[in-house]
Design a protein around this nucleic acid. Structure first.
Lengths: 209, 209
DNA sequence: CCTACCGATCGGTAGG
DNA sequence: CCTACCGATCGGTAGG
């Protein structure tokens, strides 16, 4: 993504990539402490000792995986590129693109969960400073497209509620889809987007009382 | 909670409770594979061997912890008891009660994350069948309080969006509050509830185009 | 409910 | 980048 080029990787860089990919796949399906350096080496097709030529510790491997695969890093570019004439179109478009991308990789939130549980979010600060400027761009773009269609919501809350929308969607999808009646998943994205855009309540009386 | 009584626990039951409490505290701060049976025994103030008089395996300990402390189990009763004359009051009341309860135990979602990552959600089905009927009661109650104030939203989507509201709130709180400017957290609950109830867009033209 | 132990596996390293 | 190894710790059990 932010590499200078996709081609022309040196032998060592290729190995490094294989390690990161292998570690990512294992971490998201077993957790950090549930994955051993031997498993990572095996899946990357090198010996255990070879791992330590590329990373000084298991935690260093995890940090490299986070850097490349954290959900925030993958979500933000989609939001910046979403097309549409009205704000509804842009938001629906962004939402659908993300859901499609994510359905190809159903466990994509797991990396964030591992960071929260097994590391008490110690790595989030470094990531945040990289991603925050993009998030601000996204929110400003939303307001720019429809300066008068959106209600009075502070920009930080636009970002926060929009990210929250996806957590809401995917976590409840994890939980409901294998267990609940189909009505919980059918058209789930549309219904949740509809509530997000227009609210749970009828528009008649915006003011309570 | 669903015990027949709080008092009159036998000696063995007291020990069992201590184990569950100790294991819960360790799991939510270290994860499942990051916590050892020796740590659990130590915190419960018994020897390692003694653990196995109460639980046949580490996984059995985790199942008992999930049974007692899963976020869903703790959230649903609050929703059933929320008071208020209008639907807005009920929802705001429920939200505030939950946030207050949860702020006392900031890592309360971690148990759910562990289940998702380290167990691939294998235990959710048993929990779900216990909690689902309560969720339906909650949603029906919402519709009963304000049959004409709510927009046309299927009951499953009411449940789903409402649970999602809290995931959205807490996960973004985890991420933003230590890093972002205060504007991301100030009045966060109110702003997010406002979007949930009334939508991100202005009510003028409910129909797009 | 504890002591003492089992084989297996862990993260990491020396030396080449 | 591999082989062979380190001490430490893991989940679990026998026997009392």
């Amino acid at each position: 993504m932010d590499q200078t080029g996709d081609e022309a990787l040196s032998r060592g860089e290729i190995t490094r990539e294989q390690i990161i990919t292998a570690a990512h796949d294992l971490f998201i399906s077993q957790g950090y402490h549930g994955t051993s350096m031997r498993q990572i080496a095996g899946q990357a097709e090198i010996a255990l000792g070879g791992l330590y030529n590329h990373f000084s510790s298991k935690e260093a491997v995890f940090e490299a995986v986070l850097e490349r695969y954290h959900p925030y890093s993958e979500v933000m570019p989609v939001l910046l590129d979403a097309q549409g004439d009205t704000i509804e179109e842009v938001i629906r478009n962004a939402a659908e693109t993300m859901v499609a991308a994510i359905n190809r990789r159903p466990k994509f939130l797991n990396l964030m969960f591992i960071e929260i549980v097994e590391f008490d979010s110690i790595h989030i600060q470094a990531l945040f400073s990289r991603i925050f400027p993009i998030a601000v761009q996204v929110a400003e773009r939303f307001q720019q497209i429809a300066p008068d269609r959106m209600r009075q919501v502070p920009i930080p809350m636009i970002i926060r509620s929009f990210l929250g929308l996806f957590f809401s969607f995917f976590i409840t999808e994890y939980v409901f889809s294998p267990n609940a009646p189909p009505a919980f998943s059918e058209n789930g994205l549309e219904a949740i987007l509809d509530i997000y855009l227009h609210g749970l309540l009828k528009p008649e009386s915006t003011e309570a009382k």
